[in-house]
């Protein structure tokens, strides 16, 4: 019961933050609020027993993403152009999608059900055997690095590709700026 209460309180704070992000015109405030959003979601992850996910979200989601976004607003613009307050079409679209998604949850098992399909097949094997198979007390680490090591290898490939993409996009940025100044 107490967990449900905490869940709902954190959820209300998340929604308030998200609505504030919709309304804000100053991009600095938007970026800071997205950091707040990440920290609140980290708290929610702790309530749901996902401690590893929580500290990754707090360090990577709230830390690195915020820094990257601050860098971006420093290079681009500080404020957003005023957009029309209320648009009908997006609201209609999200209502339709929301109804479809909620209809889709009707067949899902109850929250926290020990015997739900997600908790019975391979996950049950991991929970009971990771101590003897791998010997690391933290099961998440064991699965990440050993049982599903190839997933992590794929992740590294994605991060590498994104890094190369960023380098290609931003290379020559300083040089082009200098040339523009010299032309003036």
């Amino acid at each position: 019961m107490i967990e449900t209460t905490i869940n709902i309180i954190l959820f209300v704070m998340l929604v308030v933050t998200a609505l504030a992000i919709i309304r804000m015109d100053k991009l600095f405030a938007v970026v800071m609020l997205s950091g707040v959003f990440s920290f609140l979601s980290a708290l929610l992850f702790i309530v749901m027993d996902a401690v590893d996910v929580a500290f990754t979200e707090a360090a990577v989601g709230a830390g690195i993403t915020t820094v990257l976004m601050l860098g971006t607003i420093a290079l681009t613009a500080r404020t957003q152009k005023k957009s029309p307050k209320f648009q009908l079409m997006p609201v209609l679209i999200i209502i339709i999608i929301g109804v479809a998604l909620i209809y889709g949850t009707m067949d899902m098992p109850n929250f926290g059900d020990l015997n739900s399909p997600a908790n019975t097949h391979v996950a049950a094997y991991y929970v009971s055997n990771s101590a003897t198979d791998i010997g690391v007390p933290n099961m998440v680490t064991g699965i990440l690095a050993s049982y599903r090591g190839f997933d992590t290898l794929g992740e590294v490939a994605v991060v590498f590709t994104a890094g190369v993409g960023v380098l290609v996009l931003l290379s020559g940025l300083a040089r082009r700026r200098r040339e523009d100044k010299e032309e003036l």
Binding site: A50, D52, V53, T56, A118, N119, V122, A123, Y126, V127, S130, M139, V140, I143, L144, R148, D151
Partner: peptide, 9 residues
């Protein structure tokens, strides 16, 4: 269940 944690990490 640790498996969703790994995937989301």
């Amino acid at each position: 269940n640790p498996l969703p944690h790994v995937l989301i990490l």
